[in-house]
């Protein structure tokens, strides 16, 4: 089986972050939601920063989904997202609004409903 060439990744991971390996911002959860802040123009971004911003322009993305799309390690996207946060171009939103127990009740209920024949 031949491996398809990667159509998206434009920069090796270690170059995407300018050689940085740790983020200035704490975005510990890979399900952190990245949301574009409207009306803020982007100036002098690096190509990888621009690429991430362009992706978030289209809609909300989790860190993990952004990494999957950009074909970069989550650790690299975490750093890029921190840059865009610092510039006020995006916001980072917690993955869940509900407390744990309610959250898990919803999940259990939802999974059980999937089992019912349509």
């Amino acid at each position: 089986m031949s491996r398809r060439r990667d159509p998206v990744r434009i920069t090796p991971a270690y170059l995407a972050t300018g050689g940085r390996t740790s983020a200035r911002r704490a975005l510990p959860d890979v399900l952190t939601r990245l949301v574009r802040v409207d009306g803020r123009a982007a100036a002098s971004l690096s190509p990888p920063q621009h690429h991430l911003l362009t992706a978030v322009d289209g809609g909300d993305l989790t860190l993990a989904d952004a990494a999957g799309h950009l074909r970069l390690p989550v650790s690299a996207v975490r750093i890029l997202a921190g840059d865009l946060l610092d510039l006020g171009l995006i916001q980072a939103v917690e993955p869940a609004e509900l407390p744990d127990v309610e959250l898990l009740e919803n999940v259990l209920d939802g999974l059980r409903k999937l089992k019912k024949p349509a």
Partner: peptide, 16 residues
Amino acid sequence: PDGPAYLPSSVRNMVK
């Protein structure tokens, strides 16, 4: 195939 997996606006809670 290569579009980002955007979150629908209805999503309030993500569980891992």
